[in-house]
Design a protein around this nucleic acid. Structure first.
Lengths: 361, 361
DNA sequence: CTGCGTGATGAATCTTGTC
DNA sequence: CGACAAGATTCATCACGCA
């Protein structure tokens, strides 16, 4: 990250103006919960701070969308500039604004990875019985562009979901009870405070320790609070001094998880790479050993250089597995088995044993 | 309805051209499943090496967002002209196209009433582990305009949902098995046939008997089939003669339900399932907490992704319990304990306490 | 007739590192 | 930049065949 980047701070001001002062490609992840006053009840401001004159006829509704789109393009454009080329962005909204947000994100070059449904366990009912209970909000998760090598902690998400792939629909409660910040009168301080559980999942999925997370619409600071807890760095922007004050007090109370307690289920790709040949060299699978596929229908012999030989064929554990099964590709580690002490073990066992040894060393 | 309206027929042709021949304000409801503009780059294989049969049909090829938007504005514009002033429209899509659809609908003057999430009970997994399982599609339900006195059968929807207000997230299976139309080779006739249960709910919610339902992208005729079954009239448009032929044969087999027997299919309920990770996310058992077996002979620490760590070992509550006791399996919920307010409690206590248990469907 | 094992399949923007 | 090699990756459901 750039030397002149303010970090672990909440900056006061209009988000577009403040973002303009920050350097390119300086954040790894953005979480944004933008306003969606499309109904023209409250005032809608253009990026230049002028107030949109909202009246209730069709023409001005159109003006309302236009102004909202202009504002959206401005802040999303800056967010994209600030995002590292392999970074991702989360944007949350409801049917009032999410379609405009998504279309503009695509127009600006973001590459949508998923749309995520936050299913609320305790939504407000529809009191008049004129529509379906509005029981969800939508998040868009997107990479900076189609070529981004984005971060996705697949195994950690799978672990969070009882060892099944995490789906695009998330069932989480609203922010209520003690988690909900209150003002002096005991009323909710912020109208749309998000639950920490939602941020926990998004940040755990898409960032690693020490990553920089930007929240352009900080509010009462849920994003910085969870970022801090999870050992990520943050940068947040907020207009209202009352919210900043509350968020800063909240951040004081957050305890950072120690580094050794932050570890999550690692991706296999992240493990140190071990060449198959090293097991031949160190004698744990000597040259000459016979290896089999799981059903023992195929067999091959280990060569001193770590290749396998079967009949006239020779190749790496992957190549030979693919060749003999007529497959396009093959993960040799999980394809081939050997016998040890009467047990029939995958050769990946050797790799796992080595990883465990290294962790304790 | 106008006297010159063709009814209960499938018209052959390009949807925009055909719609232009129909009179203003002549339909009560539109259901549209337009091309999604998927941009598939190459072949995708399952982990078992089998090839996924993706959507590569010509009708889903567009040169870019602009071409797709132009097409979308054209058919949505005609659909709005054909819609009665109190009529509503349903449009279904995925993250590839739904944001563009929604934004254009708003621009054209439609008034969004709900966005509805079709949660698939059996979605295709993400085979490469690079994203969340894409487990839902989105429907937009909109009135012709903000002043429309639209139809919403609130009590029928409530009855469908065990006397609770119908929510905006619907849990329904894909169209598979015998319901899925097959060609002469026993393969799926249409790549994206929708389940009748989905149409059943949409038409039951937003129309009354004898209403006219228009489907501009008829495909194999799910909309007309359900419309006929429910005693609604229909009009459908389709380009491909093969699909029309199949749809007409299908319609022959559909029996109209007698008015007094409009079947109420109960909503499909899901088994409540609470991943251990939920309690880590929502803070009731924060990452870093130490858990013990009943005799306090073993201990482990909770990770941010809901796994437990003990020494070199990491795994789910079940796996780690089994591993440390050398057992084949273990019910982690009753095996592990934690301390709270001086009490020593099983982690299953959390499951029993939570309101998550009460309503997950 | 039931139950169990096997195989097939679904609107999918589905890899990464080294030479 | 391209070519090549290593290697990571799946869940629910249904039809069908066989015991």
């Amino acid at each position: 990250m750039k030397a002149d980047m303010p970090l672990n701070r909440i900056l006061r001001g209009e988000c577009v103006e403040v973002m303009k002062t920050l350097p390119d490609a300086s954040v790894n992840c953005v979480f944004a919960d933008p306003p969606y006053n499309l109904q023209l009840r409250g005032e809608l401001r253009r990026p230049d701070e002028s107030v949109v004159d909202g009246v209730d006829d069709d023409w001005d509704k159109f003006t309302g969308y236009e102004a909202y789109d202009e504002f959206t393009r401005a802040w999303l454009g800056e967010a994209r500039r600030l995002l590292h080329k392999d970074g991702t962005i989360w944007v949350i909204g409801s049917y009032h604004n999410i379609f405009r947000l998504g279309a503009i994100m695509q127009d600006l070059g973001f590459w949508i990875l998923n749309d995520i449904i936050w299913r609320k366990s305790n939504p407000m009912p529809n009191f008049r019985g004129r529509r379906f209970t509005n029981a969800h909000e939508t998040l868009i998760w997107a990479a900076r562009g189609p070529e981004s090598k984005y971060r996705f902690n697949y195994q950690a998400m799978k672990a969070l979901n009882e060892d099944l792939q995490m789906r695009s629909d998330w069932y989480l409660p609203l922010c209520t009870g003690n988690e909900r910040l209150k003002n002096d009168h005991g009323l909710k301080l912020h109208p749309t405070q998000k639950p920490e559980s939602l941020l926990h999942r998004t940040l755990l999925a898409a960032t690693v320790e020490d990553d920089v997370v930007l929240d352009p619409f900080c509010g009462t600071g849920t994003t910085p609070a969870v970022a801090k807890k999870l050992g990520r760095r943050y940068l947040a922007i907020e207009r209202h001094p009352d919210y900043i004050k509350a968020a800063e007090a909240r951040l004081e109370r957050v305890e950072v998880l120690p580094a050794d307690q932050l570890e999550i289920t690692p991706a296999k790709r992240e493990m140190p790479r071990i060449p198959f040949g090293s097991f031949v060299e160190n004698g744990s699978l000597p040259a000459g050993t016979v290896v089999y596929d799981r059903q023992k229908r195929l067999k091959a012999r280990v060569s001193p250089d770590g290749t396998l030989v079967s009949g006239q064929h020779r190749g790496s554990i992957h190549k030979l597995g693919a060749l003999l099964t007529n497959a396009a590709s093959c993960n040799g580690w999980t394809f081939w088995y050997f016998e040890r002490d009467g047990q029939f073990l995958s050769i990946d066992t050797l790799r796992q044993e080595t990883h465990l040894l290294r962790r304790t060393a």
